[in-house]
């Protein structure tokens, strides 16, 4: 990974949150809260509609990763990429119908040698996602590891 990309900001990714996608996502992450899946129940809540689990940030920021993975300047070798660490700060619950705009910036690129002597490369991305009212909904720090080749 190219260290010279530190500081690079990617174009905003816009995502419109749909009810069916929330339901599908909640099932695929074994989250059975009725606020995510039952429209009648959610209609009576303070949100008035289906809301997304906090971790739904993985979906509305998904396209951000395509920007990163296929960025020739950064030079990632996708099959060797694994997710290293993740941190999210959740500022506001996302509702069905929200339009989320996310911006990502590369904040660090570095390499580290493992105990077995293999050098792995790390890329750290910071994301900020805001809703259609300009309110921050989530900030993320995403660390990906490009596994080194032995020998």
């Amino acid at each position: 990974m190219n260290r010279e990309t530190i500081g690079k900001t990617y174009p905003p990714v816009v995502y419109e949150v749909g009810r069916e996608k929330i339901q599908e996502y909640a099932r695929a992450t074994l989250q059975d809260n009725p606020l995510y899946s039952e429209p009648e129940f959610a209609a009576l809540s303070r949100y008035g509609t289906i809301v997304a689990p906090p971790s739904f940030v993985a979906v509305y920021c998904g396209e951000m990763f395509n920007q990163l993975f296929y960025d020739e300047e950064l030079g990632i070798d996708l099959p060797r990429i694994v997710h290293g660490e993740q941190e999210f700060k959740f500022r506001k619950v996302v509702r069905s119908g929200d339009i989320i705009t996310s911006v990502a910036k590369i904040v660090d690129v570095f390499s580290k040698q493992s105990d077995s002597g293999v050098t792995h490369e790390f890329g750290v991305l910071k994301s900020e996602s805001k809703n259609q009212h300009g309110q921050m909904v989530c900030e993320g720090i995403w660390t990906v590891i490009q596994r080194g080749v032995e020998g």
Partner: peptide
């Protein structure tokens, strides 16, 4: 991120 989703649940 699926494991993280399960953790948030």
């Amino acid at each position: 991120l699926c494991t993280l989703g399960i953790a948030t649940g």
